[in-house]
Design a binder for these strands. Structure first.
Lengths: 206, 206
DNA sequence: TCAACTTTTGTTGCATACAACAGACTGTAA
DNA sequence: TTACAGTCTGTTGTATGCAACAAAAGTTGA
């Protein structure tokens, strides 16, 4: 839907969207309602619909939940006795190392994205997947590319953390996989939060 | 909305609901769409809206996520340096012991409910609270009273597990609080899943 | 009797009209 | 100049009408 290119922070008139898509206001309205439910826009009654940017505090909160959910995913993948994802994850590590060797930031970003989603999908827990999807929508629909931040040494360390996760899974160590994954998410959250450009710190009350 | 007393498993005509509430179909439609988004009903296009019962597998999945989220909540409460919830939790334990002493199942069920929500709300993480709320809606809107199951010794053990959580929080031990909480949720999930009456095992494909 | 086809019924999906309200604008008085 | 009241415009919230489709009922032929 509004993949970020639409409005920065202003109102979105329903009728304009309706004409853009060549449909009536009714389905547009339903879509907006759904986006509000997912936390991506805010509908102020009788006023209008605004795109909603997460505050710094919300990003902290989202990363806390992300850490928990991805930790669970890693644990579940490590518990499944044949892990079809294992080969995929190992190949991902190889490709990622190659990508940073050739300084291909775009490919590296995609590989990081794939790594996390492979784990979450590999959990085979549909409810976990749904919650994770909601969470990531709030974190990434505002063009936040979370992982390609040029902090010296961070990318290398990130791969090392990925490797620790894969090793624990290969060793069938759910606890270790969970801890490694949580550590990784926690580290990446600190990198993101150190960058003040991803959120508008508009003194949101608290 | 439909708090469970409406339909067992049959279609819910929009117009009937609209007349019941004295409004038009449009707001009813929006409400149903929201319920679908929360996973409580299923809308089959051009057919109708059905209440959606979780399968056994979904209950397993939901409890896995529940365990993770409540573990995070316990950890966060234990991390906050003054814990205003601590007194509330301790009082809850006292009241719960008294309730089972007088065999007041209803009060005990409410206290268990309060205990879990006190922890989650005490996490002060709004995103966690939102995800937990969604999760619990799917688990409890179908009149599942999860905790008052008459398994001999279970209630006593449940209180002991609650006490372990509170002790870890009081000791400012986030890791311990998380593990205690996860252990508790895991135990309760086994009790619920041992009771085949909470879900309709209709050979849901897989 | 039963299978395939046709008709009918019921329900949703979308379009449109109107009412209600929030916020901006304008004019007036101090 | 500024504060304030009244009006006006723009947007959403709801009601209703019609078309599209799914499923069931009825019908016909073998």
């Amino acid at each position: 839907m509004l993949n970020g290119s639409y409005n920065p922070k202003e109102v979105i008139p329903e009728q304009a969207l309706a004409e853009t898509f060549g449909v009536s206001r009714t389905p547009v309205r339903e879509a907006l309602k759904q986006l509000e439910n997912e936390g991506l826009v805010e509908i102020r009654p009788r006023v209008g619909t605004f795109v909603r940017y997460p505050t710094r505090r919300e990003i902290v909160e989202l990363f806390q939940v992300k850490e928990s959910l991805e930790g669970l995913a890693a644990s579940l993948v490590a518990q499944r006795t044949p892990s079809p994802e294992l080969e995929q994850l190992k190949q991902n590590l190889v490709d990622a190392s190659e990508a940073i060797g050739s300084e291909d930031a775009e490919t590296y970003a995609r590989l990081v994205h794939d790594f996390h989603w492979t784990l979450v999908l590999g959990s085979q827990n549909q409810k976990l997947i749904e919650h994770y999807d909601r969470l990531m929508n709030q974190l990434t629909y505002h063009r936040l590319v979370l992982e390609t931040i040029a902090v010296p040494g961070r990318i290398r360390q990130s791969i090392t953390e990925h490797e620790a996760v894969v090793e624990a899974i290969e060793a069938r160590d759910p606890m270790g996989a969970e801890l490694a994954m949580r550590n990784h998410v926690h580290s990446s959250s600190r990198v993101v939060l150190a960058e003040p450009r991803h959120y508008d710190d508009q003194t949101d009350g608290d």
